[in-house]
Amino acid sequence: MADPTPDPKHIGDRSLATGYSALVHRLSVILTVAVFPLIWVGGLVTTYDAGMAVPDWPGTYGWNMFAYPASTWLFGPFDLLVEHSHRLLGTLAGLLSIALVVAAFRNDGRPWFRRWTLLLLLAVIAQGALGGARVLLDERTVAMIHGCTGPLFFAMAAATAVMSSRWWIERPAAEASSQTALGQNATGPFLCWLASSLLVASYLQLIVGAQLRHVTGSVPHSLFKGFVHMHLGLAGLVALIASGLLLTCIFNGGLPARVRRAVFLVFAAVLLQIALGIGTWIVNYALPWAELNAWLASYTISAKGYWESLVVTAHVATGALIISLSTVVALRAWRSRATSTQVPAN
């Protein structure tokens, strides 16, 4: 099977000749928006150790998933609510992916994009199967893998939204043309590589974070400590790359607004994530030097407490958001650069 990953230069040539489909784009955006709560609820499943709240799959306590009584689901135990909601939201993502494939095959002229939507559908099916395997095998390692691939699907959905947008298909050529005429180099290779590095670093960071989150009693404390140090080191790297992107945006006024906005967003998300990361450690384990401060010394962690769960789950969801935003920045940057180098000056 050919590599479906789009090559920006080739995409530029072909997409210029194809029309923009509002339906495909809207479906992509809806899918992306729908996956974010799915990630949140998935995070809650792990936070509340609710992965085995429904012991069967794909059914729910012997019922067809969709026919499971709402009274039990909505007003029953909280674990059941989050696990079953996660499954239903996953199904919604699957249905939206199917609709997207149909819409793409009917309305989008780009063969590679059609194949991409098929890949997206395969990814959501695989993700669902992984979730099912986690339940049927009752295996935390599978839960960890499921937790790592979820944000990957979120990033794929975000990429689909970018690649189906009017800007992707029509605007870069016009922007590049006007910028070249003004003598500005719109998007340099540095920013493109920086954005790609952010994507890779933030995903690695998520994988290491998953090792901490899905830790089992058999993991030696030395290994866990190593993962924590690695997580801290990667956090520094992600912050450094995000700062580099921000500075590049500030000092390069010729960047397309879409790239700039995405960079500002991802930088804000990284700042938020650092704060949430510190918060996550405090609400899980307290600080090792709590005695230095009266407030920290008087803080008692509440197991499964509302704020504790919110902070931890928000940290997970923001991590996934950073990966998706990095994908958006990288794609827009590469797209902007690819088209600007192809359009001759007037």
Partner: peptide, 15 residues
């Protein structure tokens, strides 16, 4: 129930 204040030992009062 109470946990140990200022340490990593949480309160399990919600259980």
């Amino acid at each position: 129930l109470r946990g140990v204040v200022g340490t990593s030992m949480p309160s399990f009062s919600l259980l």
